[in-house]
């Protein structure tokens, strides 16, 4: 096991390292750089002025040198500064991360808390009207674009209830009520896809578990139905669900990116997209590296938890 863990660690590290090189090179192949953004379309700049501007921003050295500067600074705990605003990137992430994390946690909470009961009902009343409704609903949930759903929610609430969420991002800890109102629509919008998947998964595994011998036995022994469901069936059915939820974190990060932009929530996705359009290399590089690291670690953890929950699966 320790050897296996070590292997996983090395593999994670290698992946993140490779990502860093790929991203570093890709941003530099982009047409235009931050100097072009600053000079704008007016082209009032002489080549000399452009070079001078690039030099001041540390963009004049060789790629190898620039890469080395970036990576060696990371190991000293220095993520560098935004080329455009000279804000420290640690500070940028410090304000962006809580937004994204809250969005994902809320989205996940909504998805799971709705999906599990629906999935269970659907499985228990197999082929009933409610089963059919949730299955079709699930497929619709997989098909509706979250950015469209976000727009529809905004239209719906403002036209029907004359309610619009607070528009300024406020911290959960300072103004919890405003914050939750603000995150309600975006969290619902990103939760729907995950909700549908988790629901389908719960239904499928419940169907499987309900047919297993020990569940039938328990029923035969006269254990009350809800108790069988809760104690025997649901608990076992939830094991694969944990895995799905783990992988859905990635889908949610993607959904969060787009919804952040729509609702103007200054999270990681919002920051990343702005940085891409401004050619702000260090911000793009560090943001992608951060997302990759979080995602790779999360995937590894899910694998480990899965293996631990269900010893039948060998994690090789």
């Amino acid at each position: 096991m320790p050897r296996f863990l070590l292997n996983r660690l090395i593999s994670m590290f290698a992946t993140v390292f490779a990502v860093s090189i790929v991203v570093f090179l890709m941003v530099r192949f982009l047409p235009g750089n931050v100097v072009d953004v600053q000079f704008g379309g007016d082209a009032t700049a002489t080549p000399g002025a452009r070079l001078e501007a690039a030099k001041r921003l540390g963009l004049d050295g060789s790629y190898a040198h620039q890469y080395w500067v970036w990576i060696s600074r990371i190991f000293h705990g220095d993520l560098g500064k935004s080329l455009l605003t000279q804000r420290s990137i640690a500070e940028i992430f410090g304000s962006a991360l809580p937004v994204t994390i809250e969005l994902i946690v809320l989205g996940l909470a909504i998805a799971v808390s709705v999906a599990i009961p629906l999935g269970v009902i659907s499985a228990v009343r197999r082929n009933s009207a409610s089963d059919y409704a949730s299955r079709v609903g699930g497929l619709i949930g997989l098909s509706i674009p979250n950015f469209w759903l976000a727009t529809l929610l905004l239209i719906f609430f403002s036209r029907v209830f004359h309610w619009v969420p607070p528009l300024q991002y406020v911290s959960l800890f300072k103004h919890p009520w405003e914050n939750l109102q603000e995150f309600f629509m975006p969290a619902v919008a990103i939760s729907v896809f995950t909700l549908a998947i988790v629901m389908r998964m719960v239904r499928a595994t419940m169907l499987e578990v309900l047919n297993l011998d020990y569940v039938r036995t328990a029923r035969a022994k006269g254990v009350p139905r809800w108790r069988v469901l809760r104690k025997h069936a649901l608990r076992n059915a939830l094991i694969p669900v944990v895995t799905v939820v783990g992988f859905e974190v990635g889908v949610l990060i993607g959904g969060a990116a787009i919804v952040e932009i729509i609702f103007g929530l200054p999270g990681v996705g919002f920051t990343l997209l702005n940085a891409i359009s401004n050619r702000d290399y260090p911000v793009i590089q560090n943001a992608t590296l951060l997302i990759a690291t979080v995602f790779v670690v999360a995937n590894t953890l899910v694998d480990l938890i899965y293996g631990w929950l269900d010893p039948r699966i060998s994690v090789t």
Binding site: A18, M26, G250, I253, I276, V296
Partner: peptide, 24 residues
């Protein structure tokens, strides 16, 4: 599989945003 791991190091939409954004 290492190459595949790199691709898997990102959530799909984020990777698409990064690639599409970086290619232009």
């Amino acid at each position: 599989m290492r190459i595949i791991d790199i691709l898997f190091a990102f959530p799909g939409l984020v990777l698409a945003i990064v690639i599409a954004g970086l290619l232009g």
